[in-house]
Design a protein around this nucleic acid. Structure first.
Lengths: 343, 343
DNA sequence: CTGAAAGCGCTTACAG
DNA sequence: CTGAAAGCGCTTACAG
């Protein structure tokens, strides 16, 4: 049942040509005559020849494969990024191999070890939440395997990075609340151990400062993982204040959604009483009522850009470039949670 | 900067042993003395030897790699399945390479072609929505590359399959509505070209028949993709009836969510006036208000089972087994959309 | 324009 | 318990 596979040699014997010529003909090498190329290609088709890519990778030391390490693939942000990576990679003849660190430094190190085995030409990484030092990735620099980091990126060494400007985005989000007339603005913050959430908090504060509004420390609520349940707890805390905030910038959409739901249940009107802005433009932001104003974090584009940058580094190594850092443009999507719809 | 990699030969020279012995020692071959093993392993560690997995794959014809073809990875169901696959694969020393068919038959065929190049030891597939005939996958049988299909599986040939019982699940969901006292029950159906949605409709009808309830053809609304927007349209259609249904079984959660939202906007109380059941247990089902009663479709487990079955077929080929079909147990998760919470 | 030959880095059947 | 040798299926520098 199981057929032996056709190899270059089989084709060569069949056509009375050398394996070299077959190889070149299939590779559309300029030195081969058109007649021969056609003959070879027809025969290859006829016998159902599929080149053994492992043999080819072995010989050329190129696998046309990209490794991706993400915390979890079932987080929508990451699945969108991966989708962007796969899209760009596919168009350029690369395939993508995926690993989940599960936000465990230990597992991230194991994966880094595995990936040193020549399986991939380059690596795209979003660091695990536990990762503070990136020594386990420095090896790849020495091996000449390019890396691109996105979202959670290393701070302890120069690296190729694709990020958004969290500070600016948070500033824009907060400014939007201010322009809508909010004066007493709260923030639900992510872990301050993570740079991106720190930057969002900073951007929030900077906007208040620019517009000479007071920073109410007690309205800045800290969460660990910006989870939906944590958002519920934050919302309840706000409700205990003698005076509610009139605007809240949430560091992600999940917490924004829970605030909306808890507030509405308590008769707080959104956006009339409190305006809410989220961050990420998750699918739920379009479904929750009122629809959520949020920052579009360009996840798909982040994937595309990561793949593009990585493949460029794989294919033409420019000895003079040590690392590149690319910042993507985010945008504020204004919806009902900060603005009455004119429906 | 870029170091030459250490090979078996380097180790051999360093230790005055043959490459054969090094290879066996690292592989923990029983014929090698413990002393030698230790010596070799220490040296390998010292020099930072990483075996070239491409060379090894080339030699053994095993890549320890699984190919996955999904319609899109940014659909939550698929990202959960992939997560389950990656998890099981990782534990068993396999890695996973992902391709998106984008629900295009043409692209699916291209990918099938690519995967014939020896890159993977086996393949897990969810067919594109356009796929009716699976000839492009039959090649893998001949090549001895095992395949496992999940969710959308082939009907035109025997294959390894992991599915849920859509008929039974739909039956259970509908029966639940009936037991809650619903008598005039509607259904929002997916494309009847797709077996799983056909089975859900059949299960729905079977439950009504068993309990001797009328099947109101006009309350069975057909959609193309079970999208959120399509759900909105269906909901509006229901509202135009002189008499509303008192229960609706939706073939997925998106349409269920839109029905809930549209109905509530029109003052229809859920579950008092109309009880709603969805299908899939998407994250939104826990967030929408009221929370959605739905069928847990075991996406993660489906991934695990697919990987498990595939790896079994890769590692011990049993000549007597032609194909296996595994049906996973789903369960109904009862929430507020069919039952008043006792809070 | 085509071919002969070497070699990529492993693994393994065979020999001792 | 260890080694010599062959070979997996390609690619490519060299020769003609």
């Amino acid at each position: 049942m199981k057929n032996r596979r056709i190899t270059l040699k089989d084709l060569a014997k069949d056509l009375n040509l050398s394996a070299s010529t077959i190889s070149r003909a299939l590779d559309n090498h300029p030195a081969i005559s058109d007649a021969t190329k056609k003959k070879v290609q027809r025969k290859a088709e006829e016998l159902g020849f599929i080149p053994n890519s492992i043999a080819s990778s072995f010989r050329t030391k190129k696998t046309k494969s990209i490794g991706i390490i993400v915390p979890r693939i079932d987080i929508h942000f990451h699945s969108l990024v991966i989708s962007g990576i796969e899209d760009f990679a596919y168009k350029n003849g690369y395939n993508v191999t995926i690993f989940q660190s599960k936000d465990s430094l230990k597992r991230e190190k194991e994966i880094a070890k595995i990936l040193q085995n020549r399986m991939v030409d380059g690596i795209i990484i979003c660091l695990s939440i536990e990762t503070e030092k990136c020594d386990h990735f420095k090896k790849f620099d020495k091996l000449g395997v390019p890396m691109v980091f996105y979202d959670r990126v290393p701070t302890d060494f120069d690296a190729n990075k694709i990020v958004i400007n969290d500070f600016e985005s948070a500033f824009t989000a907060t400014e939007h609340l201010i322009k809508k007339g909010c004066k007493r603005i709260g923030h639900i913050a992510g872990s301050q151990k993570t740079d991106i959430f720190k930057a969002r908090l900073e951007g929030f504060k900077a906007a208040l400062q620019k517009y000479k509004l007071p920073i109410h420390q007690d309205l800045i609520l800290q969460t660990k993982h910006l989870g939906y349940e944590e958002g519920v707890i934050c919302a309840k805390k706000y409700l205990e204040f003698s005076e509610l905030p009139d605007g809240i910038f949430c560091a992600n959409d999940y917490t924004a959604v829970s605030v909306i739901q808890v507030f509405r249940k308590h008769g707080v009107k959104i956006p009339q009483d409190v305006a809410i802005v989220g961050f990420s433009n998750y699918p739920i932001s379009k479904i929750i009522e009122p629809n959520l104003t949020t920052i579009n974090d360009c996840a798909f584009q982040m994937g595309e850009s990561s793949a593009k940058l990585l493949i460029r580094h794989i294919e033409d190594k420019d000895e003079f470039i040590n690392s590149e850092s690319i910042t993507l443009r985010t945008n504020l999507i204004i919806r009902e949670s900060t603005q009455l719809s004119n429906a």
